[in-house]
């Protein structure tokens, strides 16, 4: 009886010893996966532009605006559409420089989506933005705008 118990104990111990390297292998594969993921992340970070000292970043956007329906002349339509396009370009610059605040809300009733709302908001102060090009076609005005930001503007 004692020998049989000892044999069972030895067998279980050997099986445990056999499983351990496999677990180690699993761990190594997991660690390999994480290292690959971190490499991908680092490559993504490298692609992102970072503001450095003595080096500026130029941000270029294209804003779009539409002329209202009830305009008196094509010139008025152009002027109003351009104003709207400039505001859109400013908004795009603000989104790029400062980021967007996003708020979402879903109303589900009887297992069905009744209302889905996404709210976004941006607040920023934009200075020295320049209009590069303006095009107006079929009531749509497009304004290409750029701004150069430097490290000194953000230094405290």
């Amino acid at each position: 009886m004692k020998y049989s118990l000892l044999l069972v104990a030895l067998l279980s111990a050997s099986s445990l010893m056999a499983e351990t390297p496999m677990q180690n292998n699993d761990m190594s594969t997991v660690s390999q996966e994480t290292s690959v993921a971190s490499q991908e992340m680092s490559s993504e970070v490298k692609e992102e532009q970072v503001l450095k000292k003595n080096e500026g970043i130029r941000i270029s956007v294209t804003g779009q605006g539409v002329a209202p329906m009830n305009t008196n002349s094509p010139a008025q339509a152009y002027a109003l559409a351009k104003r709207a396009a400039v505001a859109d370009a400013y908004r795009l610059i603000a989104e790029k420089v400062k980021g967007v605040r996003i708020d979402g809300q879903d109303l589900i009733k009887d297992m069905m989506v009744k209302r889905s709302t996404v709210r976004t908001s941006v607040q920023a102060m934009i200075r020295n933005a320049n209009i590069v090009e303006t095009t107006f076609k079929d009531g749509l005005c497009e304004v290409e705008m750029e701004v150069t930001i430097s490290h000194s503007q953000f230094a405290q």
Partner: peptide, 16 residues
């Protein structure tokens, strides 16, 4: 006026 700097405030909502 644009060169002096403007405060931008944008709000957008998408419902259904």
């Amino acid at each position: 006026i644009h060169t002096l700097g403007l405060q931008v405030e944008h709000k957008e909502s998408t419902t259904n």
